[in-house]
Design a protein around this nucleic acid. Structure first.
Lengths: 219, 219, 219, 219
DNA sequence: CATGAATGAGTATTCATTCAT
DNA sequence: GATGAATGAATACTCATTCAT
């Protein structure tokens, strides 16, 4: 199956931005990694920053879409255990995405500071939207009493950083599959939230399905 | 109390490397932030990379020293609860350091990839030494049965990423003091470790004392 | 009435070369101003310089042709007042052309330096031929005593620069018609030449007719 | 007498901008013409445009200063012949400056279009101030009846273009000295203005003195 | 007839670093 | 100590031009 030049550029950019950083990656590095000349590069992108923005937006868009899609599938107002399942799903999704696409997600996490003001605003807004979903889920669990969390804000940030960190160390060559990893992290997250009952397997399964669909991850 | 030019250079470097990244910071940016000319800068440092290495080494040295010092003070082979106290101390120390010196620690976390091979080896070795302390502590707790951890490696990494992440969001202008933050995180960590009994206040207090001594943090 | 692509290219080039200069105009600017792609552009021209040369040659050719045609119509060896009519016609023609086609003429005046040696020689020869007509006219007037000119060379250059300058400021939206402008300048020129008798209206009228024919100017 | 590097840069820029145009002059051309590397160039200037602006401003500032200084010296409200002397002085000054510094003045005349909007506004304002002096002088002559000018605006523009054009052809190696040239042009200008009486030698002499002072022209 | 894709050479500007003073 | 001057190599990006389709 042939890979278009545009895709090769995108992939080279993701890899290099993730490993060397945006400012550490030269236009020539990008071009030679994509197998074209640096002049040709400009047929497939605007500026170097445009390329960065496109990578970030797609990554965040997918994360948002996945989170919304996953939570939609749990919507059952009569079930007070909902937040447990929702948190499990969010964690599973986030962790699987960060383990399966560590380069994209590291770019999003590390290079926001390299953006110009306008682009930064846009990216930060997307990120805030995403984090609001986590905050809502935590708040709902606290409100219904299924979570025991003294400081929801701190817990939310701790959870997010913990899960995001996966992109910094997970290796598909290690002993853990993406599903294993998701399960481990879901358990850790529920402990942090002080949830008495562990989530059923359903939540994680559905989350994995969403992940498979959004990122084409093989489960 | 006057600040030496060398200190001004160091501080400027920490600030700029943390906010713009190593590759995003020019030698002239450093010089003007330190209030000197770019030529004068070279009286106070070797290369730009030497400056980065020095910042990273000092930061990691301090973290190591603090961790060892804190654990030494708990050494009581007859007390099987030791690991609870030890983990509390490690988390408290790590979190306080990352909250109090977010720029230094972010440089250590984000700019390892900017180092040349030789320097990277050295820095990574220091980091591994430090993480080994966490691993030992977790293993000991599992061995003595005070921790309930299905996968110590994953838990260690989750813990470290969670605590390190503090440097990315904590603000001293927020509602939480360093001690508050340390306590919140120690509690989260013990939950993650499945520790039945919470740590006594003693561990955190001693950790805070060590932190105050090593980083001159006002508690 | 449809405009051919070739004409659109030519007009875009004239406009852009006049406003941004030859070196300030990119091939892509030309293409997009002509509504085609930069590759298609090369179906309608040789190199960028060829385009410039063609513009200049046509402009100078027309000017030469107009001047000769106008002077031919006055040829009356018995009339010592001829030079007055001839100068009036030359000035009228030159001024009308530069006012009606300021972009073409500005390109000719400003971009000679952008030509390569071979092309420059050709263009300069045309220009010299044209200026020789003015020189001859002045000399004849001096010889026959109808002009009072202490330094014919200086006067010729002053006249030419004065008339050429029209292309830098005349606007068809202003109060002056092309004929008005020609009359004003013819009068100034005769004053400069120290001509006692003003030219009759005939000279200007015939010049305007030639202009109308050569450049399709509406009088 | 040594020439500073800054002066060498300025002179190289004037020469190259005048002969090849702003867009036709590369930074490397400038550097090698100044005898330094292209990186060193940036010790002595901001951007390439800054250099252009500086050249234009100085040239226009000098022209304005000279014109004001020259007119001040004639101020005699009882003498209705004033405008004749004033116009003679303006023309002499303008012509001498354009003949003695043809490169500077051609840059001013030809490269306004290469300026960015902000800089252009500034330069155009200076030029307008200067031209207003000519307009005032003409108007005054018309009002007092010493000039016979049917259309002062056209005459002003014709005069200015005629005098400015000197920079396009005058050569110091030719037969005319700067003073000769000024005299010829002053006479042409007075004819164009329909002034009955020629200016006394005083006006030109004073103008030449001002020119000598402002531009260090040897008379 | 038209163009997307391609590129080597070039653009202006900045880089980290050195060194004479 | 401190710095202005200097630079080769790099930066991101554009150039005019070609050619297969």
């Amino acid at each position: 199956m042939a890979v278009s030049t545009e895709q090769r550029v995108r992939r080279a950019a993701v890899r290099l931005f993730a490993t060397r950083g945006f400012h550490g990656t030269g236009i020539r590095d990008l071009a030679s990694a994509a197998g074209i000349s640096s002049a040709t590069l400009y047929h497939y992108m605007g500026t170097k920053e445009d390329l960065l923005v496109a990578i970030m937006r797609e990554c965040l868009d997918r994360l948002l879409r996945a989170a919304r899609q996953a939570l939609d599938s749990f919507h059952d107002p009569d079930d007070p255990n909902d937040p447990v399942a929702a948190l499990s799903a969010l964690v599973t999704l986030h962790v699987m995405a960060h383990a399966a696409l560590p380069e994209e997600t590291r770019v999003v996490d590390n290079e926001v500071g390299a953006l110009s003001r306008g682009a930064r605003r846009h990216v930060v807004r997307l990120r805030d939207e995403y984090e609001a979903i986590w905050a809502d889920t935590l708040d709902q669990g606290v409100a219904t009493g299924v979570f025991d969390v003294p400081d929801p804000a701190v817990t939310r940030l701790a959870l997010l950083e913990m899960c995001t960190g996966v992109a910094r160390w997970y290796s598909p060559r290690g002993p853990l599959s993406l599903r294993d990893l998701g399960d481990r992290y879901a358990q850790l997250a529920l402990r942090m939230a002080g949830a008495a009952s562990p989530a059923g397997a359903t939540a994680a399964e559905r989350a994995a399905e969403v992940a498979a669909q959004v990122w084409r991850i093989r489960p």
